[in-house]
Design a binder for these strands. Structure first.
Length: 297
DNA sequence: CCAGAGACCTGAAGGC
DNA sequence: TGCCTTCAGGTCTCTG
């Protein structure tokens, strides 16, 4: 499940292999992959034909390739980008172009040197589309218009801890749900939300409005810390659905303390971890280290 | 405006 | 053995 660290690992792979690359013989092979592009997958493939990638950037789980195009479709004053969201099973694989089409391959294009780039996505929650860059005054950088609604992510330069804490407190929702809300903080998914809550010793059901500035700052600091550690080892490959651009898994799964460990002893106190459903998503926590405050009345 | 629920999708895993 | 149900996840859309 690609969250911020996994998407960043993919971005770094693309920087190495796609910077300066021109897309040729573009095929978009599934209708859902191009569903966000007006005209759909066939029109998307046509628009991408001959486009050259000049830079690859990211905010949260949103990834985009800045394009220069020989196609008039893309020539306007605004800078066009290929926006990529990996959804929950998206992979981008660079190979030597001789391999046969991979299972669940949703887009394939040839690039220079006889190589090819494939977008593989088993569950089709991911998508590709073409968007335009707009200026984001909050962080003083260019972002795709379709990423306008998401907040800065905890590892980007313009991330403001105090603003995010205030935004968390403005909502009256379970802390776990707030961490997953990309409009409050972007890039966090179920794995790193559970891990940060475990590290901060906070129960995910606690309401954001009832938590102190110090507690919220702690959990955000833990989000940053766990993501940096995961990034350092190539991300989390909990199942076969996440790999880097070379098709290799990351190694952070072995460092997880709570996600996917219901019933196993807590690494701090030995109490068996418990799993509940919160906002429609599983939340695994230690009932001893991450207590809910006792309700009076 | 805001919170919560449902829809989307596919393969793995569990139950009978 | 085989069929059926349930579950997992991120984001968008709808409802109250």
């Amino acid at each position: 499940m690609p969250e911020l660290p996994e998407v960043e690992v993919v971005r770094r792979g693309l920087v190495t292999h796609l910077t300066g690359a021109t897309l040729r013989d573009v095929d978009v092979l599934h209708p859902r992959t191009g569903r966000r592009y007006p005209g759909g997958s066939a029109a998307l493939a046509q628009a991408l034909e001959g486009a050259t990638i000049t830079a690859i950037n990211r905010r949260g789980k949103y990834l985009w390739c800045v394009l220069e195009s020989e196609s008039t479709d893309l020539t306007t004053s605004a800078v066009p980008v290929l926006l990529i969201h990996l959804g929950m099973s998206g992979q981008i694989i660079i190979d030597d172009g001789t391999a046969s089409l991979r299972p669940h391959c949703r887009m394939r294009a040839h690039i220079s040197g006889g190589r090819s780039v494939s977008f593989v996505d088993q569950r089709t929650f991911g998508y590709l589309t073409i968007d335009r860059l707009i200026w984001d005054p909050r962080t003083e950088r260019w972002i795709p218009s379709l990423a306008q609604h998401i907040a800065p992510d905890p590892l980007e330069e313009g991330f403001d801890m105090e603003v995010t804490v205030r935004e968390l407190r403005r909502h009256r929702v379970p802390l776990k749900s707030a961490l997953l809300n990309q409009e409050i903080i972007s890039g966090v998914g179920n794995i790193y939300a559970d891990e940060a809550l475990w590290a901060a010793r906070l129960h995910g059901a606690r309401l954001t409005s009832g938590l102190s500035y110090a507690q919220l700052t702690t959990v955000l600091t833990e989000v940053q810390a766990v993501m940096r550690r995961a990034l350092a080892v190539g991300g989390t490959s909990f199942d076969a659905l996440y790999v880097n651009t070379a098709g290799e898994p990351g190694y952070f799964a072995r460092s997880l303390h709570s996600y996917g460990k219901a019933g196993e002893p807590c690494d701090r106190c030995g109490t068996p971890l418990v799993s509940i459903v919160l906002g429609g998503r599983s939340h695994t926590y230690c009932p001893s280290c991450q207590k809910l405050p006792v309700r009076t009345r």
